[in-house]
């Protein structure tokens, strides 16, 4: 298992080198989150984080996932700082014996990272016309209940 909270970008192929190589791994799932621009007005996203608590919170979530789905490997990378439209924000990778385990664990990780890891997104529009903190959605909280 590996968790990294970092400002620099990551390369998927490099990050996955040597991932899930245990012989009892039958499936791996990877997910990458990108900075999305719905309106054509977004200049960049600024991600603030709570150093220390971030790493610990993600580790705990990843350990829960490993145990619950008997994962053979797990990787989480989450960036902070200024991220332009299209930039990679984060990735999770899960390795399990079967695909259902790997898919469910990846969804669980994403649901928990969204509302239990201390990151906050701010959207800054083109020309600096506005900057707004992204609000948490009720659906984020609801998503946790299924687990």
């Amino acid at each position: 298992m590996r968790v990294s909270v970092q400002s620099q970008d990551f390369d998927l192929a490099t990050a996955l080198h040597g991932f899930g190589t245990a012989k009892n791994t039958g499936a791996t799932v990877t997910f990458t989150g990108l900075v999305r621009d719905d309106t054509g007005q977004l200049d960049y996203m600024e991600i603030e984080h709570y150093p220390g608590m971030c790493e610990n919170a993600i580790l705990k979530i990843a350990q829960d996932a490993e145990q619950r789905w008997g994962l053979t490997d797990c990787l989480v990378i989450h960036r902070y700082g200024k991220l332009n439209v299209g930039a990679q924000i984060m990735m999770v990778a899960t390795a399990g014996r079967h695909r259902v385990d790997a898919f469910d664990a990846a969804t669980f990780l994403m649901d928990y990272l969204k509302s239990r890891a201390p990151f906050w997104k701010k959207e800054v529009s083109l020309g600096g016309a506005s900057s707004e903190w992204v609000s948490a959605k009720d659906s984020d909280e609801t998503a946790l209940k299924r687990w």
Binding site: M53, I89, M110, K114, S115, A117, W120, S135, A136, D140
Partner: peptide, 10 residues
């Protein structure tokens, strides 16, 4: 002690 809004990671 840390105070913050609901988190918006992922």
């Amino acid at each position: 002690v840390a105070f913050f809004p609901p988190m918006t990671g992922g």
